[in-house]
Amino acid sequence: MDSLGALNAFVQAAEARSFTAAGRQLGVSSSAIGKAISRLEERLGVRLFHRSTRTITLTPEGTLFLERCRRIFGEIETAEQELAQTKGAPRGKLRVSMPLAGMLMMPTLTAFMRAYPEIELDLDFSDRLVDVIDEGFDAVVRAGEVSDSRLMTRRLGEFRLKLVGSPGYFSARGTPQKPADLAKHACLPHRYATSGKLEPWPLRRTRKDFVLPNTAVVNTIEPLVYMAERGLGIACLPDFAIRRQLEERVLVTVLDTYVDHVGVFQVLWPSSRYISPKLRVFVDFMAEHLFAI
């Protein structure tokens, strides 16, 4: 048990990159964390951290050891969850990386929280390419096809991009009948947060050199929905993000015959012999409800 405590101190320090933060997490002093890790290094015969007056960073040996420790604690947690499953509902912390557009999935996530109140969601919203295993995530939700032999995947559903604007905007500016007409309109493109590039609008039968006039450029989806609703221009948005607005005709689509796009969302998680009850219910719930009509 002393060894498990030292391993836990190491994992907490490695993930927080701080002895102080690890101590707060475990309810002990930073010096106690430092001493526990020093004893662990002495027993292993390797240095796990590079230390300076301000920061700590993992050595190559420490990085390898961290992955092994996560697997150990994952197996322990899985065993506990499998036993707990016979006694009650799934419980415990579930760390999930969501895309930036995941804010628009909050109705589904909120419903999950109500259905499983004993599961603590730890959500990280980012479009960067995360390493699910090395960064200690239980699962990651992303758009597009992802191939990694270390991961299990499940398809959550498809979505389509739509060109939309408010009825008031089209009443004032006219409705575009072909892609070239967009040159006379206020366009609201999305910029990828990771690459800084503009997301191309999936328009068929347009010249390669065709350039949209940009009225505003935004690197998250929610402001684009807000601006389009208020008649500031035309935006290219995923249908799952504007389902309510389309039903209530707050937004209407244009150029449907020219828009050619189908995307897919997947949930991915580390491959192992067992899947914990809390992760299983999360995957099943998202697959059933995220794109439910």
Rank of each mutant, 00 (worst) to 15 (best):
M1T: 10
M1C: 07
D2K: 13
S3P: 04
L4I: 11
N8P: 00
E15L: 05
T20I: 12
A21S: 14
A21E: 15
V28Q: 02
S31F: 10
A32N: 09
K35F: 08
K35G: 01
R39H: 11
E41R: 08
E42V: 07
R43A: 14
R47G: 02
H50T: 11
T59P: 01
P60L: 07
E61T: 07
F65M: 04
F65I: 01
I72H: 03
I72C: 10
E75H: 14
I76Y: 12
T78M: 02
E82T: 09
E82H: 07
Q85F: 09
G88V: 08
L94Y: 00
M98C: 08
M98T: 05
A101T: 09
A101I: 12
L104A: 01
M106C: 07
P107R: 12
P107Y: 11
L109G: 06
A111L: 14
M113A: 14
M113T: 14
A115N: 11
P117E: 10
L121P: 00
D122W: 01
F125C: 02
S126H: 12
L129M: 10
V130S: 12
D134P: 02
G136P: 04
G136H: 03
G136F: 02
V140D: 13
R142S: 01
E145L: 05
E145K: 11
S147K: 14
D148Y: 01
D148F: 00
M152R: 12
E158A: 14
R160M: 06
L161T: 02
K162H: 13
K162S: 05
K162A: 02
V164I: 03
G168E: 13
F170R: 00
R173V: 04
G174P: 03
L182H: 05
A183V: 08
A183S: 15
K184E: 12
A186E: 14
C187L: 14
P189I: 08
H190D: 08
Y192C: 08
S195D: 12
P200H: 06
W201K: 09
W201I: 09
P202W: 08
R207P: 03
R207F: 00
F210D: 02
F210Q: 10
L212W: 00
P213E: 11
T215Q: 04
N219S: 15
T220R: 15
E222C: 01
Y226H: 15
M227S: 09
G231K: 07
L232D: 02
L232I: 05
I234P: 00
I234M: 03
A241H: 06
A241Y: 02
L246I: 09
E247S: 15
G263K: 12
L268G: 00
P270Y: 04
I275K: 13
I275Q: 14
K278G: 03
R280D: 15
V281I: 13
D284G: 04
D284Y: 07
F285M: 10
M286H: 07
A287S: 15
E288W: 08
H289S: 06
L290F: 13
A292C: 11
I293H: 15
